[in-house]
Amino acid sequence: MIEAKNLTRQFPGGTVALEGINLTVPDGQFISLVGPSGCGKSTLLSLLAGLDKPSAGSVIGIERPAVVFQDAALYPWKTVLQNVAFGLELRGLSKAACREKAEVALRTVHLSRFARAYPHELSGGMRQRAAIARALVLEPDALFLDEPFGALDAQTRSLLQTELLTLWERTQVSVVFVTHSLEEAIALSDRVILMASRPGRIIADVLIDAPRPRALRHDLTLAAIQDRLLAQLSEEVARVAAQEYDTDWRGVPLPTLSVAPGEEGGSGI
């Protein structure tokens, strides 16, 4: 179980990125963090993963975290297989063991055919699959993903969402997933955590109790959840914009997703 208690993160200069965060993630649960830019989603993920230390409060329960970022950050001079095996090499495993485990991880993400390819020879989606394999090969007890599909086209993003869910169901590893897309969060997660900014804090924690795969445009319950979260998010975006924009700014209406089964709809931010 991941448990954050009264987390606060203040940066040099006095900016309070997070304040009073309390969050529990049971073993094997998939949660998503959503919220406007600057609300501290990535900061919270870094604290939960142990990449950063809080100014106050504590995080417990993480022994073997693995992190995947929006940029796959593969070493360009290493093959895909070598990139996936690198973390194991740092742990001191034998060359044969590293290779064997890396090959298994690549089969898991269906990338074995490109084991000897270099990152520049891969598509964006393939690079992200390699990054996920590099994380999974370490056998983590929690997987942290920071906008991993944010730079991908819609079709590739949809394919990788399905792949991620398949991997999660197979491994039952805890997942903390940062995204700007409410639709993506609701489609993937057991819980959606909505954050507000200045300072970053949790304003909603919503259980998504629905079978997967989920089709938001054809499920009135899920559409209602998205509308409710979008309304809260819209208010927060407007509040922050009012502080940042010139006084002549009047805002832009945001769309909703209340549609009947079989109808088309749109989604938010």
Score class of each variant (00 low, 15 high):
Leu7Trp: 06
Leu7Lys: 00
Leu7Ala: 06
Arg9Gln: 13
Pro12Trp: 08
Val16Ile: 13
Glu19Asn: 02
Asn22Tyr: 09
Thr24Asp: 12
Asp27Tyr: 10
Gly35Val: 06
Ser37Thr: 11
Gly38Asp: 06
Gly38Ala: 08
Gly40Leu: 12
Leu48Ser: 08
Gly50Leu: 04
Gly57Val: 11
Gly61Lys: 08
Glu63Phe: 00
Arg64Gln: 09
Pro65Asp: 07
Gln70Glu: 04
Ala72Ser: 13
Leu74Ser: 05
Leu81Phe: 02
Gly87Asp: 07
Leu88Gln: 06
Gly92Arg: 02
Cys98Trp: 00
Arg99Tyr: 10
Glu100Val: 07
Phe114Ile: 09
Tyr118Arg: 13
Ser123Gly: 06
Gly125Val: 05
Ala131Asp: 06
Ala131Gln: 05
Ala135Leu: 07
Glu139Asn: 15
Pro140Met: 10
Pro140Val: 02
Asp153Gly: 03
Thr162Ile: 13
Trp168Tyr: 04
Arg170Thr: 15
Val178Asp: 11
Thr179Gln: 11
Ser181Thr: 07
Ser181Leu: 11
Ala185Arg: 01
Leu194Asp: 00
Ala196Leu: 09
Arg212Val: 13
Arg214Tyr: 02
Leu216Asn: 01
Gln226Phe: 03
Arg228Leu: 03
Ala241Glu: 09
Ala241Tyr: 09
Asp246Gly: 15
Leu254His: 10
Ala260Glu: 13
Ala260Tyr: 02
Gly268Gln: 13
